[in-house]
Every structure is written in structure tokens, then in C-alpha cells.
Design a protein around this nucleic acid. Sequence first.
RNA 1: CGGGGUGUAGCGCAGCCCGGUUAGCGCAUCUGGUUUGGGACCAGAGGGUCGCAGGUUCGAAUCCUGCCACCCCGACCA
Length: 491
Amino acid sequence: MAKEITSRSENYSQWYNDIVIKAGLADHSAVRGCMVIKPYGYAIWEKIQRQLDDMFKATGHQNAYFPLFIPKSFFSKEASHVEGFAKECAIVTHYRLKNDPNGKGVIVDPDAKLEEELIVRPTSETIIWNTYRGWIQSYRDLPILINQWANVVRWEMRTRLFLRTAEFLWQEGHTAHATKEEALEETIKMVNVYAEFAQNWLGIPVIIGTKSESERFAGAVETYCIEALMQDGKALQAGTSHFLGQNFAKAFDVKFASKEGTLDYVWATSWGVSTRLMGALVMAHSDDNGLVLPPMLAPTQVVIIPIFRTDEELASITSKVNQIVAELKSKGISVQFDNRDNLKPGFKFAEYELKGYPVRIAIGPKDLEKGTVEVARRDNLTKEFVSQDGIANYVEQLLKDIQTNIFQRSLKFRELNTTKVDTYEEFKEKLDNPGGFILAHWDGTAETEEKIKEETKATIRCIPLDGEIEPGKCIITGKPSERRVIFARAY
RNA sequence: CGGGGUGUAGCGCAGCCCGGUUAGCGCAUCUGGUUUGGGACCAGAGGGUCGCAGGUUCGAAUCCUGCCACCCCGACCA
């Protein structure tokens, strides 16, 4: 069939592409590196957005919107920020087209050149801090706790649907504070929000940590992150929260009058997650039959498939299904009844497995006689007959179980694929088998990190926050190290 | 941006090397009928700028040049 997907063992990358495309999440577009997010994929993104947005509001943030375009000069104000993003910026140089005097089509009107070029935002720190300057005079104007949902553009050389696209959707929080302590607290608060979301909603266990200097956000003093492990043993950075210190306040001259009467620079944070989470969702849970979605994020949690021969049978099944649908909906469960008569049940089963619907209910003439339905769960592909009485309670609990099971399974996988090593030999060996997270001592220098990266492709994913203090020796230089850091090959 | 590959109907492919009538096949789609507890069957029908643009030729899906997109592998990144 046209819908068949490559198995993970055969070709993991192809498996991922197949799922994204064949489950209807996204497609390639006519523009290099840019994707079309299709309705089913966008519905998942909307659920992600809704939940995160609630969490942001609950922690005191408000949404706002800043421009897509940033004057080029803004970029040069924060040195490391420019350096970090300069290589992947899209630039607007003209503002008008005209008919090609030589024939067909249109050309850029050379007379319509912008005096100052505009950068299509790769992130919004600069335009936002330029704006905040006008909003902040005294400590009474602080803190400013703002988030924006937006698209950004980073001109990537090699792209992959959701994981790395030239344009992507995200949210970026940008906050301003009177004290360093408060900004640091905000940074950590938000990385914890991300971790909670990843674990309870995406069903993906994450490790919270800080980045090494070389992996840090351009312009940040400290970058906190959540790191997840994918089924192929590669790590995926799922979210970041940056303590920006006073770097942007200094670059954009944002000062405030303190309670004590001094004039101080403002402290800043920024934090974001992107449509990359969609990629994480696919790679963390799905199998060779297709997508596996956690119930908390599935656009539709339950699909009901009638098994029938005649119109009469369909009619009597339908009336029973209508009751079940009403019961499920009254519990806030999203449900879809697929009564198409041109497809066989088996086809539909495969279709909904591909799309990752968490629960499938099949109901046929025999069920009507016996007062049962067949309930199949997507996460472990098991099915059983369940009484129609109390079906809503049963499904409600089942959805919770599936959510838990998906998380536990990922957690177990991560545990099995996390290895402590004490020598470089062992490091290289474990990196290939089993792969995954490698916990090793590191002397804290960028040189050692770079050497390991060059030789093994593995990078420091993070210095885990809850990692135990355990003195040891760097696997490369033998210099003292106070704790293990997490290495992995990463997306 | 370097190396390798691909591009022919909605999807998957054959045809290309060795140019030559109306460009084929499977799936999907539409119509009719029989079907329906794990990807149904029969009959009929519709659907094509052969990725795009040039060139060679009496004639190009096929040969040549350029470009575009996608995939795999590198360098760069969320």
C-alpha cells in the first residue's frame, strides 16, 4: 500500500520522514527548507500552544507581538549575538517589484533599495530590548513578563521537517527584571515549566541542565535546557531558557532608577520552544506502524469504527455509538465516529494506527448482542472486549494509563541508554553501543569539549542540575572534575 | 556549499543506456454491483506541461547545458 512506512531498523531517518508525511503532519513546500504544516500536524501544535500558553499565563506572563523585521543595525549591538546569528540571516534589501522590461515576469526594482536593510528575525531579543528601553524608567516598571508566539527564520543549510526548518514557529518569552536574583529565578522557573510540559504532556522524560559555554545561546550568560533522548539514541534539545544578565540592557542602554536612587542596567531572560517539539513527539514514541500520540496532545483521542454488513446493521450500531459518543464527550474526551462505508474496517484500523489515535473502539453486530465493544490501545497495540456499561469511565482511565505508559516506556528506554563511563575508550565504545546519554567527567574546558566533538561527534548536552556532586577525573586530560556531564550525539 | 542519488497521473514505479506512432503498470479516484470482526472483488471510466528553462535533431521522457526541489553523507545550527 501507498501508506507503508520504512521500519526504524531499516532506516531511522526515512522512518521519521515517512511518519511525518504519511501521518499527514507536514509536507515539503515549494520553498527550500520550509514546510507546510498540515491540519493534523497543526492541530497537535495548537494543543501544545494552548497548554504552554496556559502555563505561561499561570506564571504571570502576557502575550504581545513584535515585528518580523529587525533593522540590521540592531544586530550589531550585542557582539556575541551577531556572531551567533550572522551566518543564517535572511535579509530584506528592497521593497518593490516591477515588470521585467526585457520580457516576462517581474524583477526587483533597483530603485526601491532600502536605506537600511531589514533582517528577518532569527529571534527577537534586539527589537524587544530596543523597545523595552522606552518602557522602563524605574523599578516600578519591572518586571516585564512578556511572551510572543511567532515565526522566525534561520537560513539552515540542511533541513528536516520539524527538526530543523528555515522558517519555524515558536514562542519566545522575554522578561526584564530589577535584580540578578529575580532574573535567574525566572530563567529556572521557565525551564521547569518546559520540563513539566515535556513530561506530563508530551510524555517525554527530560534532563534539566545548563549548557557548556560553547553550546550557550549567543548573548546569554547562562543557558538552561531540557534534553530528551530519541529512539535512535540521539539527543534532542527540546527547550531552552536563557539568563541574559545585563548584556542586552547594556547593548540597548536600558536602565532603571532603583528604589535606592541608583541608575542600574536591567536584568534579562529569554526562553523558547519551537515546532521542533513536534519532531521530538514523533521520534520519542512512534513505532513501525506509525505515529503514537500521547492522549493529552492527540487531536482526537478515540475513534469508533463500526463493523457492519447492511444498512440496518449500521443503523443499529450508529444509535449505540451515538450514546457512547455522548458519554465520552461528557467527560471531555474527543471522539470521532468513522462511518464511511467504502472502506473495510481493517483499512481504517491501519489508518488510525498510522495517525496515532490513542484509542480505537470497534463495534459490530456481535457486540450489540453481547453488550460489548472492542477497545484497542495504540501505545502497545493490545485490544480487549469491554462492556458497553461504564465505557466512558473505562476509556477515561485508559487514556490516563496510556499517557502514563508512554512516559514510563520512554523513561525506561532512557535509563537503559544512559551509561556512566570513566575512560575515553569506554566513552567511544558506549557511544556506539548502546548510544544515548553518556555520563562522564569533563575538565570544564572548551578545548576538551571540542576534541571530543571532533573525534566522536558527541557534544555536551548539558550539565545536569540534579546531578550528584561526584569528584572524578576528566576522561581526556585527567584533570579534576566535580561532577559528570551528559554527552551524546545530538540532532 | 562539497560528494552520491532521485524527479514520469494524487501515491509508488517501469520506459531513458541504444531518440521514432495514441507514454505504460500497480494503488488511489469516479460509476455500477457484490462485500465489510485487520489494509475486499468484478466491470467500466476519468486523470500526464515526462521537475523547470534552453539547446541538438526531421523528430526528445530518452542526448547536451543550466537551474530548481527532495533524499543520503559531510561542514553549520534550535
